[in-house]
Deep mutational scan, measured.
Amino acid sequence: NQASVVANQLIPINTALTLVMMRAEVVTPMGIPAVDIPRLVSMQVNRAVPLGTTLMPDMVKGYA
């Protein structure tokens, strides 16, 4: 099973992602693959992402 990107903290809307905000976890359903974490750094979320939420492609501006 491939790990997905999960929020390590509450990420407010329009926040630029940093490594500290994300962790890799095997979850269902799968979200953004953990291998993409370096690519996500400095991209912004388009909604508030609660702690423990799996990041989906439509939550990150410019990802999809």
Rank of each mutant, 00 (worst) to 15 (best):
N1W: 08
N1P: 13
N1C: 04
N1Q: 14
N1M: 15
N1R: 05
N1L: 12
N1T: 08
N1F: 08
Q2C: 04
Q2P: 10
Q2R: 07
Q2W: 07
Q2S: 06
Q2A: 13
Q2N: 10
A3M: 09
A3T: 14
A3L: 12
A3N: 14
A3W: 06
A3F: 14
A3I: 07
S4L: 01
S4D: 01
S4K: 02
S4C: 03
S4N: 01
S4F: 03
V5T: 09
V5I: 15
V5R: 00
V5E: 01
V5M: 02
V5C: 04
V6S: 03
V6I: 08
V6Y: 03
V6P: 00
V6T: 07
V6N: 02
V6R: 04
V6E: 02
V6G: 01
A7Q: 01
A7Y: 01
A7F: 01
A7R: 02
A7S: 14
A7V: 07
N8F: 05
N8A: 15
N8P: 02
N8R: 06
N8H: 09
Q9S: 11
Q9K: 09
Q9G: 09
Q9H: 13
Q9T: 09
Q9W: 05
L10R: 10
L10D: 15
L10H: 15
L10I: 14
L10V: 12
I11D: 00
I11F: 02
I11T: 01
I11C: 03
I11R: 01
I11A: 01
I11Y: 01
I11G: 00
P12N: 14
P12G: 06
P12H: 07
P12R: 06
P12L: 09
P12T: 09
P12C: 04
I13L: 07
I13W: 15
I13R: 09
I13K: 12
I13G: 12
I13Y: 11
N14F: 08
N14H: 09
N14G: 12
N14D: 07
N14P: 02
T15L: 05
T15R: 06
T15Q: 09
T15V: 11
A16F: 11
A16P: 13
A16L: 13
A16V: 10
A16E: 10
A16C: 03
A16W: 13
L17V: 04
L17E: 00
L17H: 00
L17K: 00
L17S: 00
L17D: 00
L17F: 03
L17I: 06
T18N: 05
T18V: 04
T18R: 05
L19F: 07
L19D: 06
L19H: 11
V20E: 14
V20Q: 09
V20K: 06
V20R: 07
V20S: 15
V20P: 06
M21L: 05
M21W: 03
M21G: 04
M21F: 04
M21C: 02
M21A: 08
M22C: 03
M22H: 00
M22W: 02
M22L: 15
M22G: 00
M22D: 01
M22I: 08
M22T: 02
M22Q: 01
M22E: 00
R23C: 03
R23G: 05
R23V: 11
R23K: 12
R23P: 01
R23D: 06
A24T: 15
A24Q: 11
A24S: 12
A24N: 08
A24V: 12
A24Y: 06
A24H: 05
E25S: 09
E25T: 09
E25I: 06
E25C: 03
E25R: 05
E25H: 10
E25P: 00
E25A: 09
E25M: 14
V26L: 13
V26H: 15
V26E: 14
V26F: 08
V26I: 12
V26M: 15
V26Y: 11
V26A: 09
V27Q: 05
V27Y: 02
V27N: 04
V27M: 13
V27F: 02
V27C: 03
T28R: 06
T28N: 06
T28G: 08
T28F: 12
T28K: 15
T28Q: 15
T28P: 02
T28D: 11
T28C: 03
T28S: 15
P29V: 06
P29K: 10
P29G: 05
P29D: 08
M30V: 11
M30K: 14
M30F: 13
M30I: 14
M30R: 08
M30A: 10
M30S: 13
G31T: 01
G31Q: 02
G31K: 01
G31W: 02
G31S: 02
G31F: 02
G31I: 02
I32L: 11
I32H: 00
I32M: 05
I32Y: 02
P33S: 09
P33W: 04
P33G: 09
P33N: 14
P33E: 06
P33L: 06
P33C: 04
P33Q: 15
P33A: 08
A34D: 09
A34V: 05
V35Q: 14
V35R: 11
V35S: 15
V35G: 15
V35K: 15
V35F: 11
V35N: 14
V35A: 11
D36N: 15
D36P: 01
D36F: 08
D36H: 11
D36S: 08
D36A: 13
D36Y: 06
D36K: 05
D36W: 05
I37N: 01
I37R: 09
I37T: 14
I37Y: 03
I37V: 11
P38E: 12
P38Y: 10
P38S: 12
P38Q: 13
P38T: 13
P38G: 10
R39H: 15
R39E: 10
R39G: 12
R39A: 07
R39P: 03
R39S: 12
R39T: 14
R39Y: 11
R39V: 11
L40W: 02
L40H: 01
L40C: 03
L40M: 14
V41C: 03
V41M: 04
V41F: 06
V41S: 04
V41I: 12
V41H: 05
V41N: 06
V41P: 03
V41E: 10
S42E: 12
S42P: 02
S42F: 09
M43I: 04
M43W: 11
M43N: 04
M43Q: 09
Q44H: 11
Q44M: 14
Q44R: 10
Q44I: 15
V45I: 08
V45K: 00
V45W: 01
V45L: 13
V45A: 06
V45Y: 00
V45T: 14
N46S: 13
N46R: 12
N46F: 09
N46A: 14
N46C: 03
R47C: 04
R47I: 14
R47K: 15
R47M: 13
R47F: 08
A48C: 03
A48R: 13
A48Y: 10
A48G: 15
A48V: 08
V49W: 02
V49Q: 02
V49H: 02
V49G: 01
V49M: 08
V49C: 04
V49K: 00
V49T: 05
P50K: 08
P50Q: 09
P50T: 08
L51K: 12
L51W: 11
L51R: 15
L51N: 10
L51M: 13
L51T: 14
G52M: 06
G52Q: 05
G52N: 07
G52K: 05
G52Y: 15
G52H: 07
G52R: 06
G52E: 08
T53M: 13
T53L: 15
T53N: 12
T53D: 10
T53Y: 15
T53E: 08
T54R: 04
T54E: 02
T54W: 02
T54K: 05
T54G: 03
T54P: 10
T54Y: 02
L55K: 00
L55V: 11
L55R: 00
L55N: 00
M56L: 15
M56T: 13
M56K: 06
M56C: 03
M56Y: 14
M56E: 07
M56V: 07
P57A: 15
P57I: 07
P57D: 15
P57T: 05
P57K: 10
P57Q: 07
P57H: 08
D58Y: 06
D58G: 12
D58L: 06
D58I: 06
D58T: 10
D58A: 11
D58V: 12
D58C: 04
D58E: 11
D58S: 14
M59K: 02
M59P: 00
M59G: 03
M59V: 15
M59T: 07
V60H: 01
V60D: 01
V60I: 10
V60R: 01
V60A: 02
K61D: 13
K61S: 15
K61I: 11
K61G: 13
G62D: 14
G62M: 14
G62F: 09
G62I: 04
G62Q: 10
G62H: 11
G62Y: 07
G62E: 15
G62R: 07
Y63N: 06
Y63A: 05
Y63S: 04
Y63E: 05
Y63V: 05
Y63F: 13
A64R: 03
A64L: 12
A64I: 13
A64P: 12
